[in-house]
Computed example of a mutant assay.
Amino acid sequence: MSVMKNVAVIIILLQSFQGINAQNVFTKTQEFFVTTKIMDQGKQHPSYVINLVSNREDINTISTLTLEDTELFEDIFISTLENPGLEGISKVIKMEIEYLACCAHVEAYYYIIKDDLSIVALPNLKNVYCENSDTDYQYIFPNQEYGIKGNILETQTFYNEETADVKYINLKQNFIWKDKIIEDLKTTAITSY
């Protein structure tokens, strides 16, 4: 149990330091929440249907996912990024689903809310946080530190071992926001040291 607590502390620290380093950060929100439906209650570890929904009347269900590995399921965290710096986008929702074993496995789902209230989902990202983890995958938007105008960057961020300062960022994927659609450039490059 002590290892799980250590892993949870590491995750919280990494997320906190990411927030400190960003100019505009994802923050916890009460505007969106999750509803859960247990599918086969006769099974020892039944699957769950998870609905990400909004408190607002003009937006209903954002996303529906099925969690199959419920034995290791731990928690769901929802945060938003207001005004991410993309034309026609009001906010980005990030939903992180955490599974705990010897390490924490976190699946991150990002949903872009357009001004017309339509929703665009980005490909989900997976992170594994163990005791000595010094990297994670994330999306960086134009108004965040290391952001590029008109681009959504899928990055792998490396942190210094002694501190939580960013050591460097490796660009994994570049999405261009153009005419209110996402274009996939399929590029890989180092963006920052």
Rank of each mutant, 00 (worst) to 15 (best):
Q144D: 14
D134E: 13
K114P: 04
V120N: 14
L122W: 00
I140Y: 02
Y110I: 05
L117Q: 15
L125E: 06
Y110E: 03
T135L: 12
D115I: 07
Y109P: 06
S118G: 11
Y109F: 13
I140G: 10
Y146I: 11
D115Q: 14
Y129F: 15
Y129G: 08
Q138N: 09
I140P: 05
I119T: 04
V106H: 00
E107I: 00
Y139Q: 07
D134W: 06
A121V: 02
Y109C: 12
E107C: 02
N124H: 14
Y109S: 12
Y109E: 10
E131F: 11
L125Y: 09
A121D: 01
I112G: 01
N127A: 02
E145A: 15
C130W: 04
V128S: 13
V106R: 08
Y110A: 03
L122T: 02
T135A: 12
Q138A: 07
L122V: 07
E145L: 15
S118H: 11
I119C: 02
N143K: 12
L125Q: 10
Y111C: 06
F141T: 09
Y129H: 13
C130T: 06
I140N: 03
N132E: 08
Y139D: 09
Y137K: 13
I113E: 14
C130E: 02
I112T: 06
Y129A: 04
V106E: 05
E107M: 02
N132T: 08
D136A: 06
A121S: 09
E131Y: 08
P142N: 03
D136K: 13
N132V: 00
